[in-house]
Computed example of a mutant assay.
Amino acid sequence: MEGGAEGDGNSKIKLVVVGGGVAGAFLAKEMQFVADVVLIDPKEYYEIPWAELRSMVEPSFTKRSLIKHMDYLTNARIITSSAVSITENQVLTADGDSVTFDYLVIATGHAYSTPRSRDSRLEQFEQDSQKIKSSKSVLIVGGGPTGVELAGEIAVDYPEKKVTIVHKGPRLLEFIGDKAAKKTLDWMKSKKVEVLLNQTVDLNSISEGDGVYMTSAGEKITADCHFVCVGKPPGSSWLQESVLKDCLNKNGQLIVDEYLRVRGRSNIFAVGDITDVPEIKQGFLANKHAMVVVKNMKMLMKGADESKLAKYKASSAMAILTLGRKEAVAQLPIGTMIGWLPGLLKSKDLFVGKTRKALGLNS
């Protein structure tokens, strides 16, 4: 492996990053010439998460949003496997590797199963796209950000299809304010999307063959296919029997200090959705976590005093959710907006070009 950027011996410091999502990918990229970096991820690629729902209606979009780790990590070792436990100074993988670290960053986000290879993931999007294309009616279970954005993509691209959202809560998008949720519900109605609130669908009783779904309120929904868009637990089950088991809160999130270090640990950091930072779990915030930790690890590697470390301040509730290709709903510090104006910010390219550039790739 190449020496450190300044040849000052830092290259001997072993940094292991577990998880190749938003935070893990950017952090590994930023640190690859500063330390000996090992990225452990069960898949061979980084997926731009906010492009996923567009990819389900337009699979060609994935050509730019699924990026092999090796394309942006030119000076790091990549282990394509799952981490199964950690000790005081090693990460153990499902394939039997033991990887020693001086510094460790945990970035395993939410528990989410995706194929190991990029080609298989591309194929998955093709299948989803065909499923939507060949259906006259689609049921979406869950009215959080994923369900809302998927409904928006389908309603705009296929206005002739009947789309139904079933959501267990009293309103859509419960993670942001009432105003944004109300505007989104009105938008859905204007696109003839049916929204059933305070109801659930028993997923165990679903048989897609007959196309009939029963809600908890006894309503029958007829749909040719369905997509489940409900929240997933933090990706921390692998830590429950490890040396960090006492650092998990009751929700399965890692408890971190103001420097994003895992509680009681000076050389283990956590970033992104797996942390207990009290803010909305979003990709752009995971990226902010990564930048703070990069700064702090560089300082610590130079022997800086703790008082010099950068502190992370939880962000206020801010979000932009796409509603198809041109519109979006945005909750910003200046207020709540819906329509083409917030859509200009995100909806056309979904920040894919910007994200690729940040990874050092052509936009």
Rank of each mutant, 00 (worst) to 15 (best):
G209A: 15
A51E: 05
V18A: 10
V243G: 05
D8E: 10
K133Y: 02
T322N: 07
F61Q: 01
A358S: 15
S65F: 00
G21W: 07
N362F: 07
W340T: 14
V18S: 10
E306C: 07
N362S: 15
A94H: 12
V293D: 03
F269K: 04
L350V: 06
A290V: 04
A94Y: 12
T62V: 08
K250S: 14
L139S: 05
D102F: 13
E208I: 11
L173A: 07
K12I: 08
M318F: 03
H167W: 00
P42L: 08
D246S: 14
E2R: 13
D102H: 13
V292R: 04
L309G: 01
V37A: 01
G3L: 12
K168C: 09
Y158W: 10
E258M: 06
L300D: 06
M188C: 14
I255L: 04
N198L: 13
H289W: 07
A155R: 01
D186I: 00
A290G: 06
V293Y: 02
L321K: 11
G211S: 00
A25C: 00
D276E: 07
D36W: 03
W187T: 01
N89L: 01
L92W: 13
L323S: 05
G303F: 00
D41K: 01
L197K: 11
R121S: 12
N296D: 14
S81Q: 04
S113T: 05
L332H: 04
F61W: 10
C229Q: 04
D210M: 00
G303R: 00
T80P: 02
G231V: 14
A319F: 05
P234N: 03
L359H: 12
G209I: 09
T74R: 15
S129F: 08
M1Y: 02
L239N: 13
Q124L: 14
V156S: 11
L300P: 08
D349T: 13
N249V: 02
D202N: 15
E174L: 11
S120P: 02
G339F: 09
R77C: 01
S347V: 02
L244D: 05
P59I: 01
V163F: 03
G143T: 03
G20M: 08
K346Q: 09
G353L: 10
I86V: 15
A217I: 01
A330T: 02
Q331A: 07
I13E: 11
S236Q: 05
P159S: 05
P59N: 01
G272K: 04
V138Y: 00
E174G: 15
K43Y: 11
G21D: 06
A310I: 00
I140N: 02
N362Q: 14
A107F: 11
S216E: 03
D97Q: 11
E258T: 12
R325L: 10
K298V: 11
T146V: 14
A83Y: 13
D178N: 08
L185M: 12
L332S: 07
G152V: 07
G252N: 05
K131V: 07
T62A: 15
M1G: 08
K326V: 08
